[in-house]
Simulated assay, not measured.
Amino acid sequence: MAIVAQQTNFSRIFWPTVAWVVALIFFFPIFWMVFTSFKTDADAVKPEHLLFFTPTLENYANMTQNYDYWRFATNSVVTSVFATAFTLFVGVPAAYAMAFNPSRHTKDILMWMLSTKMLPAAAVLYPMTFLTKNFLGIFDTHFLIILVLSLINLPIVIWMLFTYFKEIPKEIIEASKMDGVSTWGEIKDILIPLAWGGVASTALLCFIFCWNEAYWTVRLTTTDAATLSKLIEGNRAPEGLFFGRLSAVSTAAVGPIVVLGWFCQKQLVQGLTFGAVK
């Protein structure tokens, strides 16, 4: 009994300590970014001012007054919200069809969709830029960014929703069909209410992925549809990186999504673990 009690006490101390250490390791880059945002560009690169310096809000004032932060933030919100809505608009019916009306090619289609995530983005950058600039005329528009973000996240959204929809008994859908409910009625009145937790967590993850997307939003925009990723990239110059201003802009960019993730962590964990436990 003493050995068991000793092991239990050791586990109660050891594993929480490991968890705190891992959490601090992951949190430290965010802390240091926020910490550096209160330094001037000169102090940010001086070793003697690594920890001790005079805090300043100059970087934040410069960001709002000279860099038009709110315009970039508005573009990020608009593109992320509409891309998430469009992705769900397409993904929910697609996942419904694959979950409740599967064919012998359903698994192949799911694997094909997932394989598109393995394509290097740089491989299609030039043709995408060339077509959108010279033929379609939609370069640097909200429509283009929304479309690209939707297509990027659609495979993941369909996979998550498909996994969650498979957990719903087919008898419920079959009973609604016998009652004469239309396909749209099944999705709107039966499937979504039953799977609301899964749909909400999927939408949250999709929104985070859209907000954090940097490769395409930087390369397919210049001014009109530029998001916060473009604003962050703009703090790079031939002289080097302006670490103080860069940290302030990065803090303002990741702050909203970090707060959202903190308050919705339960839904995030649920969305990432769909179908993991049977």
Rank of each mutant, 00 (worst) to 15 (best):
K117T: 12
D43M: 08
T8N: 14
L231A: 07
N235D: 03
N62L: 01
L144V: 07
S37M: 13
L191E: 02
Q267R: 07
I257W: 03
I158Q: 04
A195Y: 03
H105L: 15
K107M: 08
A237P: 00
Q267W: 09
T217P: 04
A85K: 00
D224T: 11
G198T: 05
N134E: 11
P155M: 07
T56P: 12
A121H: 11
K177Q: 09
Q65W: 12
A200K: 10
V277W: 12
F207V: 02
I145Q: 06
N62G: 09
I232V: 14
I173Y: 06
P155A: 05
L136V: 05
I192Q: 04
S150G: 13
A97T: 05
M178T: 15
T202F: 05
D41L: 12
G137I: 05
V148L: 15
A97D: 05
V21F: 12
Q65L: 15
A2K: 08
R245F: 04
N75Q: 07
P169E: 05
G240V: 08
A2I: 11
F72M: 07
D41G: 11
K230S: 14
S115N: 05
L51E: 00
V199H: 07
T227Q: 06
R245M: 12
V277P: 01
P256V: 12
A83E: 13
F53A: 03
A248H: 04
S201Q: 06
F243V: 13
G137A: 12
M178P: 12
W20S: 08
Q7L: 10
L51H: 09
P93H: 11
S11Q: 10
A253L: 06
L260V: 13
M1G: 09
G275T: 10
H142G: 08
L268T: 10
T17Q: 00
T54C: 01
P102R: 14
W15P: 15
E233W: 13
L125E: 09
Q267L: 14
F28E: 04
T202C: 13
T202P: 04
P193V: 02
K188R: 10
M1E: 07
I156C: 11
T227R: 06
V90T: 13
I145A: 04
S11P: 00
S229H: 02
Y96S: 07
T141G: 14
W211H: 12
D68Q: 00
L260E: 07
T223D: 11
H105A: 13
P47V: 08
V181A: 14
A214P: 02
A203Q: 01
W15E: 02
